[in-house]
Simulated scan of single mutants.
Amino acid sequence: MTTLSTYLQIANNQSKWQAITAKSPDVATQTKYFKDNIGKVTTVDAFMKDARLFNYAMTAFGLGSMTYAKGLMHKVLDGGVSSSSALANTLNSSNIKAFAQAFDFADNGDATTTSSTLVDTVVSRYTEQALETSQGKQNPGVQLALYFQQHAPSLTSVYGILADSNILTVVQTALGISSSTSSQSVDTQYRLLSSKVKLDDFKDPTKLQQFIARFAAQYDYNNGGDANSQSSLLSTLFDTSSSSSSFGLDTSLLLSVQGTKFGYF
């Protein structure tokens, strides 16, 4: 299966795939521990001393690779999110900010972890991360597409693209921008992306899916995908009887991604 077909199969049945992932032994075990113990935590210190709770929460917010940075994250949680000068608001990381907003001990104190909304949010995000990871073992392109679907709509600045390696990879791939541009200055990269990307498009469900389709086709092309299979798949997607047609893939998109390298719209 192509990256696009696999992505659409999951995206069109997100709740089903998340339910399957939630029942997998490892995810179910870690989630049970989190649910059983998070309510017992009343301080930042206690939260971070329980490695299973802390790692679960960090993973849920896409920060699994930063679990070693306990000093930094302690400062993030201590500072809260109320002040514009709070560390969480100055690091230019939407994931860190979301983490600090969820675990806002600074404003909510020992009531922070007793919220059912918090538990539901963290568990849902952890399950989504687990789903992305499991798909990534089979096809990294699918993992990137799912990640982009979840996080791109919340971008508020092009700097947010540069701060997230997964989102940057999707954007560079979709637009045919060489990854070597990442070695250029941040200001140069910012000007380049600003001239090619409209963040509001990622908040539009149809345009978001069109961009992901463009990424998926280019990803497969870059990784030795068959142009004929791409053309056949996209033609199928254009068939209005197909459930995936709900993503609004139009004729211009189909013509633009039939197995050849391309620029942006």
Rank of each mutant, 00 (worst) to 15 (best):
Q189L: 00
Q149V: 09
S182Q: 09
V158A: 00
S178H: 11
Q218W: 05
P140T: 04
D204G: 14
G141S: 09
L193I: 00
I161Q: 01
Q143I: 03
F211D: 03
A174T: 01
D187P: 13
Q172Y: 11
I161T: 00
Q189G: 00
L155D: 03
D200M: 14
Q189D: 02
Y190G: 03
D187S: 14
K207W: 14
Q189K: 05
K198T: 01
S180A: 06
S182Y: 07
R214N: 03
S178D: 13
Q210E: 12
S179N: 14
K203Y: 14
G141C: 09
T169R: 15
D200Q: 15
L175P: 08
F215K: 02
K203W: 15
R191W: 10
T169Y: 13
L146S: 06
F202A: 03
Q209L: 10
L199A: 00
L162K: 08
Q209D: 13
A216Q: 06
A216M: 05
K203F: 15
V186E: 14
V186G: 07
D164L: 04
H151G: 03
D164Q: 06
L193N: 00
Q210Y: 13
S180I: 06
L144G: 03
G141R: 12
A213N: 04
V186M: 12
P140H: 08
F211C: 05
A152L: 10
D201G: 07
T156S: 09
S178G: 07
S182W: 06
A216R: 06
